[in-house]
Amino acid sequence: MSFIEHIINEQSITTETIAFRMLLSLLVGAVVGFEREYHKQPAGLRTHILISMGATLIMLLSIYIPQTFSQYKPADPARLAAQVVSGIGFLGAGAIMKFGFNVKGLTTAASIWVIAAIGLAVGAGMYWATAIATLILLFALIFLDIIEKWIFPAKFIKYLRIYSSAGYDLQTDPISDLLKKHKVNIRTVDIEQTFDDKRTSLYFVIQINENVKINTLSKEIGQIEGVQRVKLQQII
Rank of each mutant, 00 (worst) to 15 (best):
D177W: 14
A78M: 15
L120H: 08
G222I: 01
Y127M: 04
L57W: 03
K158D: 06
I96W: 04
T68C: 09
A95L: 06
Q234R: 08
G100M: 03
I18H: 12
E210R: 13
Q233E: 03
K158H: 08
L50T: 01
L170F: 06
N215M: 06
V103K: 02
F156M: 12
K73V: 14
V28M: 11
L160Q: 03
L80R: 04
A116H: 05
E192S: 11
K149N: 14
L232E: 00
H6F: 03
L137H: 05
E148K: 14
T47F: 01
D169R: 13
I235G: 00
A131R: 04
G89P: 13
P77E: 13
A95C: 07
E225C: 08
E220P: 02
F34W: 07
A95R: 07
L26P: 01
K181Y: 12
A166V: 12
K155A: 10
N102A: 13
D190H: 11
A43L: 03
L138M: 11
V31K: 06
F143D: 09
Q234N: 06
R46H: 05
L138E: 07
L61R: 09
Q193T: 14
L61I: 13
T188R: 14
K155Q: 13
L106Y: 02
D169S: 14
P66D: 12
L24M: 05
T68I: 11
N215C: 04
K158T: 05
F152C: 13
I4V: 04
M59F: 05
N9L: 07
I162W: 00
H39Y: 05
I186N: 02
H48R: 01
A55V: 03
Q234F: 03
Q171D: 10
G54R: 03
Y72T: 15
F101Q: 14
V28Q: 06
Q11K: 10
M22N: 02
S12H: 08
V31H: 08
A129I: 10
L179Q: 07
I214F: 04
E10Y: 07
L106D: 03
V189W: 01
F34E: 10
L91I: 12
M97K: 05
N215G: 08
K198M: 15
F69H: 14
L80C: 05
V230H: 04
H48D: 00
L24I: 02
Q71F: 15
D197H: 15
K213S: 09
I112K: 10
S176D: 11
L61Q: 08
I4H: 01
I51E: 02
L232A: 00
T47M: 02
V32K: 02
R79C: 07
T108G: 02
A93D: 11
K213N: 09
Q223W: 07
P74L: 15
I224N: 05
D169G: 13
K213R: 10
V31P: 12
T14W: 09
